[in-house]
Design a protein around this nucleic acid. Structure first.
Lengths: 137, 137, 137, 137
DNA sequence: GTGGTCTAGACCACA
DNA sequence: GTGGTCTAGACCACG
């Protein structure tokens, strides 16, 4: 599990961790039942306070994404519950709109924007496959 | 100038405004010397406290991006350097990637995702036109 | 409203505050609708961090004892049921018993103990009056 | 030696044990040279982790109150000086004051409070005698 | 001025 | 070693 924290974004660090765990779970980079990094080592790796990681994990637990066994560790839950289709759509629209508004602010044309989308879809797909290949070793 | 505020992201609202003004300035969507929206109307439009917009503008002024002429308004400074195309692209890629990762997390297929993109491009285009029509009144 | 914080007891400060507010509410010493001390001034008076008081108030709100209007202050809820006399008695018995047990551990005789009680009643009464006099200025 | 642990008080368990040993020692209720309960049985009796009792004893040892003879047990140190009377008094005052403040919060009058004190003195005296009778069996 | 949040350090209970 | 809690400082949004 690899984390990439952006300290300057203004987005709370604990939320960045939450999102990345959710992403990893969604892409099966993190398998159901698999252990997440322990709080203390992860905090050291990210150069962050223990509590910041703890808060992220606590948030993930209250979201039902992970389950934490005190003294044992934190584990991805088996029964990942999917959101209803329109709820997922609403979440996704937020991120899509932000990208579109950014494109507009940067005066990227519609065609350039769509071309970029396709490029990134391909790039991220490749990354994901490479990651899954690694785990098979 | 169109703003898109995400209240749930955890990113400070005033920073979201700052970033969007900087993006618009970086691409010359906002021209040097051009006036920014006044604090009070913008605060109303964004459903945000006036202090929050004022803080964003104050931040932008201390960054040298805009200048405030008391009683006149806020204007983009003359000596703003436009970012090169690949720098702008990099900014945009961040937002695009986030949307893609979110789509993947929500298990939205590539085709559904692309369809949503087109929908939102149309919706936001309409909004923008309506907005410009209003201004012409 | 008088608070008595014991920093060496090991009992969390925020819980000491919670208990004392609950006690005052239970006996109508604090009236429904009445404002509690604001977080910052109270924190200063008690020589405690703002967050410690905030946590106490937050706990009280989740218990339904007070209600907090952001930007306005914290107020005792209207539908606060006064504890019946025997319930109040039960609360008090806990503290009385602890003092008695301590006296026994310290092998303080019954008469010495009673004498001490009267002394402290007088001392604390004087303190309280001094406090009320201050408020009348 | 009888211990009374309050799990809800928020006061660290190991400190509750430390305080009770110190109180008993301060008043010679626990005699110099006398053995303390062994860690494992005491932990079981109190329904607490052995580490917690061990931590209390370790704290007491570093305070010079007890000494640990490996394989033999823990014993109250010989040179344990009973606290002077005014020091014991100070300890007691803390508990007395807390009871008085609680009474004030609950708007219990001085007379009612004093009546309650006498009642509890009698009740706890009876309990104590019953307990000592048990031990004689 | 009000309350709320994020990050951090130190400590606790437990396996 | 594990996760959990309490206290604290700095910052945010809002009236």
């Amino acid at each position: 599990m690899i984390f990439q924290i952006n300290f300057k974004s203004g987005m709370p660090i604990y939320l960045q961790i939450v999102d990345q765990v959710k992403s990893a779970a969604a892409s099966r980079a993190l398998q159901p039942g698999e252990a997440l990094p322990s709080i203390r080592p992860l905090a050291e790796e990210l150069r962050v306070n223990r509590n910041t990681v703890a808060k992220a994990y606590s948030e993930l637990e209250s979201l039902g994404v992970i389950e934490t066994l005190p003294g044992r560790g934190c584990f991805l839950k088996e029964n990942q519950s999917a959101l209803r289709k329109d709820a997922r759509r609403k979440l996704l629209i937020e991120d899509v709109d932000q990208a579109i508004v950014q494109a507009h602010h940067l005066q990227v044309s519609r065609d350039e924007f769509l071309k970029l989308i396709h490029e990134r879809l391909d790039v991220l797909d490749d990354k994901r496959h490479a990651h899954e290949d690694l785990k098979e070793d």
